[in-house]
Design a protein around this nucleic acid. Structure first.
Length: 169
DNA sequence: ACCCCGATCGTA
DNA sequence: ACGATCGGGGTT
């Protein structure tokens, strides 16, 4: 079944863990999520919203279940889903997926930049309500994956939090 | 107006 | 270990 707003309006790490094994549908593409990271509020120094509201991070302060797409390193885009109650800035970064399309035998896309490059996701896809879109949504196929909790990647602060969730293959 | 640097990736 | 590449955000 399709994931609804209630799924995302919860503690971010719970959402990040439960997104593992869920199916991301984007047009004709079906991808199984295999790696996520939590970024949680103004007390998390690695969170884009750590220093408050800006034009870029504004979507993180809104209602859960929306996309947050940002541009990074001059070359890459990264896809997140907003979590928690409106007013509390938090999101889950999608770091890894497995391609489910039958003609492509379960290829792994490891890394948030590669995922967006593969799907052609850009900042034009920022702020899409993932719970009310027929072309871009998530659904639960009942897959439960074991995972390990690890430090997040590519940051210099907040490394004490093990908020990266990697599914065991 | 200016400057630094980043939730990355591919190559070395 | 490092270069490519450029917008965001803080500072002047």
């Amino acid at each position: 079944m399709k994931l609804t707003r209630d799924f995302f309006t919860r503690p971010t790490c719970q959402v990040a863990q439960e997104l593992l094994g869920k199916i991301l549908v984007y047009g004709e593409n079906k991808l199984m999520i295999t790696e996520t990271e939590s970024y949680i509020g103004q007390k998390d120094p690695a969170c884009h919203a750590a220093k408050g509201l800006t034009k870029r991070n504004a979507i993180m302060f809104g209602e859960a279940g929306y996309t947050y797409v940002y541009f990074i390193y001059g070359m890459y885009y990264c896809l997140n889903f907003v979590t928690e109650e409106e007013g509390f800035p938090a999101a889950v970064l999608i770091r890894g997926v497995k391609i489910m399309h039958p003609s492509e035998q379960s290829i792994d896309l490891s890394g948030p930049g590669k995922l967006c490059r593969y799907l052609n996701i850009t900042t034009q896809h920022n702020g899409i309500d993932i719970t009310k879109n027929d072309n871009f949504y998530l659904y639960d196929e009942g897959i439960n994956l074991e995972y390990q909790s690890l430090p997040r990647v590519g940051i210099k602060v907040g490394l004490d939090k093990y908020w990266r969730y990697l599914a065991k293959t």
